[in-house]
C-alpha cells in the first residue's frame, strides 16, 4: 500500500494548475485531482512547471472525460487513503482464483458511472481515461461496472451487448479448423461463427467489419 510519504508530491506551489484536453478544452485542477492521478503527479514532479497559467496538455483525453474525472476526484478527495491500489499484486496470501469484489460500488459512484454507456462507447472512454491518468478508484469503478454487466451472460449475449466483431470469414476463429460444425442439422457442413449465429433464433449483431 502506498504510504503517506509516497503520496506527498514534490512540486512546490502553486497547487492549482491548468490542463488541456485533446479537443482543446482547458480545466483547472487542484490537489484533489493531483493527489489521485499518479500520471499528473509524476508529470509535475518530473516537469519543471513554474508557470501555472500554461495548461498541461493531455492529448489522450477528451474534454468530457477529463471533466468527469475531475468531478470524480473532487468528490473523493477525502478518501484518498482508501483508494484501491495495486497492493493486492503483492499479496501472496491472496488466492489468484478468487475474484475481487465488485458489489461494493457506492451509491454516488453508481450514479456517476450511469452517465457513461456502452452504446455510445463512453463507458470504455472513461475507463481508458482513468487508466491514462492512473486514477485507481475511478478505474476500479469502471471495471467493476463492466464486470457486473457481464457476469452470468454467455458469449452470444456479451457479443450483442458490446457489439463485438466477428473474425473475418476464413480468418481467426472462422478458419475451417476452428469453425463450428453443425450437429443439430445433422450434416457435417462447416459453419462460420456468423453462420452459426444466423441460424439461432436471436438476431445476429451487425457485423462491424462490413
Amino acid at each position: 500500500m502506498a504510504t503517506n510519504v509516497e503520496e506527498t508530491y514534490l512540486y512546490s506551489s502553486p497547487t492549482t494548475f491548468k490542463v488541456s484536453s485533446k479537443d482543446g478544452e482547458i480545466f483547472d485542477i487542484d490537489d484533489s485531482f493531483i493527489n489521485q492521478s499518479k500520471t499528473i503527479k509524476n508529470m509535475l514532479n518530473v516537469l519543471d512547471i513554474a508557470d501555472n497559467h500554461m495548461p498541461i496538455p493531455l492529448q489522450n483525453i477528451k474534454g468530457t472525460m477529463l471533466n468527469a474525472a475531475i468531478v470524480f476526484c473532487k468528490y473523493h478527495k477525502n478518501d484518498l487513503l482508501s483508494i484501491p491500489d495495486d497492493e493486492d499484486e503483492d499479496d501472496f496470501e491472496r488466492d489468484a482464483y478468487e475474484p475481487r469484489r465488485s458489489d461494493d460500488i457506492s451509491e454516488w459512484d453508481k450514479e456517476f458511472i450511469k452517465q457513461f454507456t456502452v452504446e455510445e462507447g463512453t463507458l470504455f472512454d472513461i475507463i481508458m481515461a482513468a487508466n491514462y491518468l492512473d486514477i485507481k478508484a475511478l478505474l476500479a469503478v469502471g471495471c467493476k461496472t463492466i464486470a457486473n454487466m457481464v457476469r452470468g451472460k454467455n458469449s452470444d449475449q456479451v457479443r450483442q451487448m458490446f457489439n463485438i466483431s466477428y473474425d473475418p470469414p476464413g480468418e481467426g476463429l472462422n478458419t475451417p479448423r476452428n469453425s463450428v460444425t453443425s450437429k443439430e442439422s445433422g450434416d457435417n457442413q462447416l459453419l462460420t461463427t456468423q453462420e452459426k449465429e444466423s441460424r439461432c433464433k436471436t438476431p445476429s449483431p451487425e457485423l462491424m467489419y462490413d
Partner: peptide
C-alpha cells in the same frame, strides 16, 4: 472482478 469460469463462459469463441 470475475470468476474464471464466468470469464470463459462470457468471452470464449468471440474472436
Amino acid at each position: 472482478y470475475l470468476h474464471r469460469i464466468d470469464i470463459l463462459h462470457s468471452f470464449s469463441q468471440l474472436s
